[in-house]
């Protein structure tokens, strides 16, 4: 069952992940999840033995897209978690309790975009001047692109899977 178009990522139900086709992107798997499920999914990945590789964000028309890259050492297969923050929300749970390596990555996202990570132990600027309150990677309104424009048709929802069944 393949669903066309990325509008469907908004239809993900709590407790489920939307598994996207990967195409030539370079991931083994990529998943869309709801912001509220983030901690659960990350805890599950931790149990499966994934290593945290990278956290990044970008601004799009719908809001912010956060991308978490995970990696497995034995086969180098990467997994990307994508979380969409819509309706002007600029807050998300910090995953630093599970992966302390996220502390710096999250501070960097806070620097560049002003995204606030809840329960982060020390959310202060990492790279930018603490006196200046600027977020250099925010885009002007006319420069923002919709999600479907930067992740086009090739990336369709293949199936919805339960968080507990992720490791399989």
């Amino acid at each position: 069952m393949t669903k066309e178009g990325l509008g469907h990522v908004l239809e993900v139900k709590p407790g489920f992940c939307a598994l996207l086709a990967t195409g030539k992107v370079g991931y083994k798997k990529q998943l869309f999840i709801l912001p509220d499920d983030l901690l659960n999914v990350v805890k599950h990945l931790d149990e499966c033995g994934y290593a945290l590789e990278n956290i990044t964000a970008l601004e799009i028309e719908e809001g912010f897209l956060l991308v978490y890259h995970f990696n497995q050492w034995n086969n180098g297969e990467k997994l990307a978690l994508k979380v969409l923050l819509t309706d002007g929300v600029k807050e998300i749970d910090s995953i630093s309790d599970v992966y302390p390596g996220a502390l710096w990555h999250e501070r960097e996202c806070f620097d560049f975009f002003g995204i606030v990570f809840k329960n982060h132990s020390n959310l202060i600027p990492l790279l930018l001047d603490p006196k200046e309150n600027i977020h250099p990677l925010l885009k002007a309104k006319n420069k923002r692109q919709p999600l479907a424009a930067i992740m086009p048709e090739s990336e369709k929802i293949e199936q919805y899977i339960k968080i507990e069944e992720l490791g399989k």
Binding site: K24, I150, P152
Partner: peptide
């Protein structure tokens, strides 16, 4: 063309990754 790519290579200090998003223009989107 518009799309996303994540490519990593082995540098002297470890895994170097470039995560690129394009909107089809001559400038990277992110």
């Amino acid at each position: 063309p518009a799309g996303e790519v994540y490519f990593t290579v082995e540098g002297a200090r470890g895994e170097i990754g470039v995560h690129l998003l394009s909107d089809g223009s001559a400038y990277p989107y992110r």
